[in-house]
Nucleic acid binder design. Sequence first.
DNA 1: TGTTAAGCTGAATCTAGGT
DNA 2: CACCTAGATTCAGCTTAAC
Lengths: 367, 367
Amino acid sequence: MTKVKEAAVLPRNEILQGDCIEIMAGMPEASVDLIFADPPYNLQLRGDLHRPDNSRVDAVDDEWDRFASFETYDAFTRAWLKQARRILKPNGAIWVIGSYHNIFRVGAALQDEGYWILNDVVWRKSNPMPNFRGKRFTNAHETMIWASKSEGARYTFNYEALKSLNDGIQMRSDWVLPICNGGERLKDANGDKAHPTQKPLGLLHRVLVGATNPGDVVLDPFFGTGTTGAVAKMLGRDWIGIERDAGYIEVAERRMKDIRAYDRSALQVSQSKRAAPRVPFGQLVERGMLRPGETLVSVNGKAAAKVRADGTLVADGVNGSIHQVGAALEGAPSCNGWTYWCIRRDGKTVPIDVLRQQIRSEMDTAG
Amino acid sequence: MTKVKEAAVLPRNEILQGDCIEIMAGMPEASVDLIFADPPYNLQLRGDLHRPDNSRVDAVDDEWDRFASFETYDAFTRAWLKQARRILKPNGAIWVIGSYHNIFRVGAALQDEGYWILNDVVWRKSNPMPNFRGKRFTNAHETMIWASKSEGARYTFNYEALKSLNDGIQMRSDWVLPICNGGERLKDANGDKAHPTQKPLGLLHRVLVGATNPGDVVLDPFFGTGTTGAVAKMLGRDWIGIERDAGYIEVAERRMKDIRAYDRSALQVSQSKRAAPRVPFGQLVERGMLRPGETLVSVNGKAAAKVRADGTLVADGVNGSIHQVGAALEGAPSCNGWTYWCIRRDGKTVPIDVLRQQIRSEMDTAG
DNA sequence: TGTTAAGCTGAATCTAGGT
DNA sequence: CACCTAGATTCAGCTTAAC
């Protein structure tokens, strides 16, 4: 057991090397405004995974992500959450990010340790890695838990700032952001990624704008290559990083030196304007706008097809998407099924595109 | 403790009134294909909530949603999950839906009871209720956990059907669907909503199309007003509902009577190649579709191999199956020889897979 | 220099069936 | 159970090469 300094002065704007449980134990209690934590996920990966083109997936197989059992992982989780809670100010809060491998254990531990969950926030990745074997759903999101130190605490929530970030509409619990790649992704001397799980700046930007004020102290107990520190510094917050790995610290130190507060251009992240959202034909079936077994008629009245439960059509032995079946029946190279296929409604024949428009207008009002 | 009948016959297509833990305890083990559960969320709401216009929000404040503590809720959760797991077939699976109030406890319990989590799936609501006080994020999603009975189980996943539902792109772990309202929302005699947390049909449609096959047995231990049963019946699955509340059962019974199954042909979903009958490469030689001594060319044009009478290939001193030789020549860990090796036909280079297709279509027409 | 095509990669608990 | 082999399987975005 390492001897721990008692009630030392809180360090600021530096990276501390070592185990986060021990280092937090040496910090004064009730001194930190926000903790953002990206702990090991305990992925429990087995063998290799290859893409259909036979290239190998560069998996997270680092030593720091390996735990002997759920019990071991739980003990670790509860230990660092306990110290984190001790050093939080009474009105402080915590964010923890994870995947289904670990997030349920983290969430239960948060509740058991006395934190009060305010929201779970879903990071919906716009460009996740697909499921190569077709055995599960694309793992397209990660989950963040936002919790105050205790029930009734007066946590920071910059409602208006977040609303502005979201084009004037109240920010929701699901955030669409791309994964960290391109120029933002830190590389080592060999040109390989410096850290296997670097988080995007945009994610931290939204967290810190929403949950802290300038001058607040932000602590990241699993600092890695320092995304939390980078955004905190840009936004004029004080930051503290704790990290075990000397290699990551070296990259992070270099990174932090180059960060300037309020560097506008660095804050520009993925403000892509929304194109008309894609609506799969299958949604019309799922939502009951079309029944499986129902018949669609072609716009020229010459062809008919039957809807199946999986959102495909069947006609004259042809089965496939609305576009494929339309093209096949017309002997055409392609066909826009949305305008080709029609239903009877109010005595009129209307293209199924009107149903798609209905869904799109619902999505618009939802933000 | 209620006396429980042992290894009774599994009831089908009916609603059983009572406590789901006791009733499941009376069911034969390994008899159910899929469980969909929407357990109490343990919302812990304090006091009334009012909208900005001072109208009162009709919150979930029913007795069944109240638990004294996390310990009580955990005990309840583990008890019903244990029974649920017992009655699941070895290759069965479970879906549980919840919010941040309870889903972390449910997820940890699932893992502790021996279930194997396959995905967490986020239901992203297109029209959620806003956060009226502006103190948190709009609670715009709920989380579902999909888990098999145990690690390594061969669970059902209709990959191609779900891909069809999503316009030909692999289905992701985030699903955008509207909440249940309008004509779909069941009303009681007073015109009020019959159940506070009725789930949309579209959600269950996607779950059941993806995770069951026609004829499977689907159990919902918290049946409520029967959305799971309704979709199961429409999709030609058998269903079992368990519900404590007589009022909900009455609504559900009435609802189930009016449900009609879609016709058979509409229930056919796109099959994956995995389900197609296996055709040994040797059959192509036996049937004279390929001659011993004939040369095959690789799809990239870089390699060639000669067919032998026993259905193996030879190239550059390598001899073996179409897959083994392909993998060896490419230096790859594996190779699908059916799509890798090609023949010349009508002046074009086509993969030998088309020959396999010919055999398979003959098998189809032969019955 | 501009445009197009090909290549690479990302927190992944990623097979099925026979002997 | 272990072991072996057939053979099924990917989306978006950025980078680099080719034209």
